[in-house]
């Protein structure tokens, strides 16, 4: 009952959230297949602050919850982070496919940080239904995602369950990006108001946390600028810096 009322509330927010203001990006989470209520909002909120502090991107601090229905198309970028099983309906699968083909991007962060956990299995199974026969592929460290703002040489998160990001390519870009390393968890500030972090980051400690934030910044920058850093004009600079 509680869950149902939360979903109805989320739908109301989603529709009202279709109105954005200018060049401020809205952050929306998918509420579908049972996901959406217990994901890492604290991590997302901290991340939004970090992104706005470090880059020129403006993001509305209010996190919107959006159902997989036509309202989803007002949010070109949504995240999915959940700790349980996930099952999309046939209609949701169709809408998600249309959304991704039309230019939408989904970033999935596995808060469990364990390969093969319930959410991991669910994500792989359900996204295989969206693009039948297409499964996640490892995003190589040479990809532009790792250069879109910071020059990143390794993948990070609260844990290092997998030393790379997974992704599904649609029309020359990664439309689905999947991290097994609980990036939002690494970014989450503790709720006690003391300014500390909610979770420890293992095995690399604070350096690993910083790299997790950088990776998250890069993912958002990639979503907004695509392969901008692959443009010829940037290549000599990036090569020079990478060689140092």
């Amino acid at each position: 009952m509680k869950k149902k009322s939360i979903v109805i509330f989320a739908v109301i927010i989603a529709f009202s959230g279709a109105v954005h203001s200018m060049d401020i990006i809205s952050w929306a989470k998918i509420s579908a297949g049972g996901a959406g209520t217990d994901s890492r909002d604290a991590g997302i909120k901290s991340l939004i602050v970090e992104i706005m502090k470090r880059t020129n991107i403006d993001i509305d601090p209010e996190i919107r919850l959006v159902q997989v229905n036509p309202a989803l198309f007002s949010f070109p970028f949504v995240t999915l982070s959940y700790n349980s099983d996930l099952r999309f309906t046939a209609l949701e699968i169709k809408i998600l496919r249309d959304y991704l083909l039309a230019g939408g991007t989904i970033f999935i962060d596995n808060p469990g940080g364990v390969r093969g956990n319930v959410f991991d299995l669910a994500v792989r199974r359900e996204f295989n239904k969206i693009f039948s026969g297409v499964s996640f592929e490892a995003i190589p460290i040479s990809d532009v995602i790792y250069k879109s703002f910071y020059l990143i040489k390794f993948v990070s998160g609260r844990v290092i369950a997998q030393p790379y990001l997974d992704g599904i390519r649609v029309g020359g870009r990664y439309a689905v990006i999947y991290s097994l390393n609980d990036i939002f968890g690494a970014c989450a500030k503790s709720s006690d108001g003391g300014g500390g972090w909610e979770f420890d980051v293992v095995p690399g400690g604070e350096g690993q946390r910083e790299h997790a934030i950088r990776l998250a910044v890069n993912i958002i920058m990639y979503v907004l600028t695509l392969d901008y850093k692959e443009d010829m004009v940037h290549k000599p600079f990036i090569l020079r810096r990478e060689s140092k």
């Binding site: 470090r54 020129n56 910071y150 020059l151 600028t225 901008y228 600079f237 810096r241």
Partner: peptide
């Protein structure tokens, strides 16, 4: 294409060499 990805008020927390910015 040239995009302004950060302005002088943004704090990137790293040396220039770790950024892809020009």
């Amino acid at each position: 294409n040239f995009n302004i990805l950060r302005t002088t008020v943004d704090f990137v927390n790293v040396p220039e060499r770790e950024l892809s910015l020009i």
